[in-house]
Design a protein around this nucleic acid. Sequence first.
DNA 1: TATGAATGAGAATTCATTCAT
DNA 2: CATGAATGAATTCTCATTCAT
Lengths: 227, 227, 227, 227
Amino acid sequence: MSNRLEPTSRNYDEKLQGILKISAKIFAEKGFHRTSVRDISRATKMSLAGLYYYFTTKEELLYLIQERCFVTLLQRWERAATPVMDVRTRIRVFAENHLSFFCHNMHEMKVMAHEDESLTEEFQVKILVLKRRYVRVIMDLIRELQDQEGGKKVDLRVATFTLFGMMNWIYTWYQPKRDLPLPQLMEQMLRIYFFGVLHGGAVEASWFNSTSGASSKETFSLWHNNQ
Amino acid sequence: MSNRLEPTSRNYDEKLQGILKISAKIFAEKGFHRTSVRDISRATKMSLAGLYYYFTTKEELLYLIQERCFVTLLQRWERAATPVMDVRTRIRVFAENHLSFFCHNMHEMKVMAHEDESLTEEFQVKILVLKRRYVRVIMDLIRELQDQEGGKKVDLRVATFTLFGMMNWIYTWYQPKRDLPLPQLMEQMLRIYFFGVLHGGAVEASWFNSTSGASSKETFSLWHNNQ
Amino acid sequence: MSNRLEPTSRNYDEKLQGILKISAKIFAEKGFHRTSVRDISRATKMSLAGLYYYFTTKEELLYLIQERCFVTLLQRWERAATPVMDVRTRIRVFAENHLSFFCHNMHEMKVMAHEDESLTEEFQVKILVLKRRYVRVIMDLIRELQDQEGGKKVDLRVATFTLFGMMNWIYTWYQPKRDLPLPQLMEQMLRIYFFGVLHGGAVEASWFNSTSGASSKETFSLWHNNQ
Amino acid sequence: MSNRLEPTSRNYDEKLQGILKISAKIFAEKGFHRTSVRDISRATKMSLAGLYYYFTTKEELLYLIQERCFVTLLQRWERAATPVMDVRTRIRVFAENHLSFFCHNMHEMKVMAHEDESLTEEFQVKILVLKRRYVRVIMDLIRELQDQEGGKKVDLRVATFTLFGMMNWIYTWYQPKRDLPLPQLMEQMLRIYFFGVLHGGAVEASWFNSTSGASSKETFSLWHNNQ
DNA sequence: TATGAATGAGAATTCATTCAT
DNA sequence: CATGAATGAATTCTCATTCAT
């Protein structure tokens, strides 16, 4: 079926990464379906046919972008989380991980959030596996948190997807020039998530900064995905 | 745009509503760009050319769906909110309004949330006006709430769009058969929003039910948009 | 799957027949795969997209041509053959039928003989059913003949496909201006088939002409398929 | 056409033959136009660019296959025929030659029979020369036969191409597992050709076997073209 | 000899839209 | 109001071929 061999030279990989980066940008701006491979050809300054050396289908291109996002997200999470941390901290690290990646790779994340269903079966299934693994991480953490806290609990799925909703919605409104800088955005979002809008403002800032092993600044500096 | 007179016969209106409803469903399922006017022709059992009596452009069709959503949302809000209510209640009513409409018109809302940017300039501008008006409502309420509460405050835009993110993300994960029924979903979401996951579960249920002027049940029964 | 309705107006049918005729000609001249739908668009003076109103796939176009050939061939045979005739005559009538159609619809028949395997599964299966029915007719006749004659027999499949080979190969060499006129071509071919090159020439011509119910001339005048 | 020197190393020749063999197989299976050079690259396990060392054009590849067929066919004929033989025997030897080669190199022969017109002008002309030479051989024999026999004669072209039709059509129906083994197929075909279906079965077998200088077995053992 | 990477030309097909009726 | 028939423009993808190495 697939006409291309599997090349793995350094050169090939670098070029592919470049194509993914640029494509993600265009997909984010125009939407996957509105984007023609010609647009990508134009933006990458490669010939139309030349692009097809790097992927077999426009859909595979979308898949490659999404797959890479999830894989990176999971890798970074595994690297960042230590079993020593308490649950709350781990949740916060998870969210920081997510948000930092999000904000530093806004295009890719918008594509992930928005073009979810643009994949065809085959690819959608593969992505679903990754996504499930990713969602399970935070779900397990929230369950652990709830077990610890006791009392009347919020439904687990609601608790989970509420968090994702808050975070993933960002691409629809966040304007770097107008809105809070990333670290503060993250902090405030977590405040709302943990303590609610009503009390979130009141919680001492220390709670947010002192418990995390890696300071936000450190986390941030590592983020760019494209090299 | 439209050269023809605006027909207003009862028949015409009914038919148009039917087309909008069916189109929204297909747009929600396949995405706006993947949906061809032929798909709509098939689903409505009208001829391709026949459809064009009811709209001039596929994009106008999308616009009509979105416009109708915002208009209804705003109307319902104005009908539901009373100046007597206190801020918290008004916020809750707003959210209930939004969520109820959302869940009862999932297709339309998914289209609204998802196909936001699929509109062309011209139409996008018109929708933006409505959307801004709608957003301002809740933004003003949140500001009022924060003024009342005093203390350190969360950024207004963050507070606003966090709420929308939580709510609008629903279309990506909510499965009626698997998840909580709508009223409870609403309640839990508001708990998280107001009090946070940590304490949200503990707040007495009474808080949620007794203060609202209109009971959820009443609210719900009004919701279906399609007749 | 199929986007088009099934129109059956007189006009539609006539137009489709015209397209089939012209396409058959081009397929015969350039081969199916070398022919682009653009070529057909040019030859029919219809727009590229306009053609697709009449078929869904270039392959379906080929199918329609082939199907029509077999159906006509079978119809004509059923009309021409009478149970009264003796076996030899029936065989001759079958061959006359085949050859007359062949020579009067050379393009279509070349396409049938040559582009056999250019059809995709789905269509190939449908054609196979017709072809089998057609082949069985002559096979049964040959078997009957052999039963009657007694003596050492030639293998049935060899006897059958040898006849088809002789006849269908015509498209590769026959030039109307250079070669015998059709009725004589037919006669000579049948002589060879029945009596061999060695003795075929010697058999009295009467054998060929007096036994057939319909004279060749009559048969020929009916042949054009395209109206 | 070709700018490069003609390499003649043993290695080169062997490799080219391998490529021709494999290509013939694919051409036979998928048809010339449907076959991409990539298909050949895959099947030969050579790189796309590497193949072009052995031919300059996909069409040249087809040409090489066909040319080699005709050349071999002519060589074998010249080796097999002796002026001593009587005409009938010579015709039989010609047919045996053709059929044996055909059946032992089905792929190549199908390509020859089927992809006749797929060549471009230039190449087609070259092949035509060979083909004419080949056809003339049998045509001359048949003329000689007819002169000898006297009586009313069958048209020469009809007599010639009827024979080719019978033989070349084989690729469309012959299934080794289902049909007669090759020597019998040959015998029966020749019976039909010489004596007709009606009497062909009755002719004594001896006629076929005793007069031929080379027994079929011998003929067959020489046939494989690919080394 | 051999190949990885690249490309121009062209292929089939789809789509939103129109227009005469 | 409604529709059958038609179309221009675009889209994804494939292909034979090349060229630097």
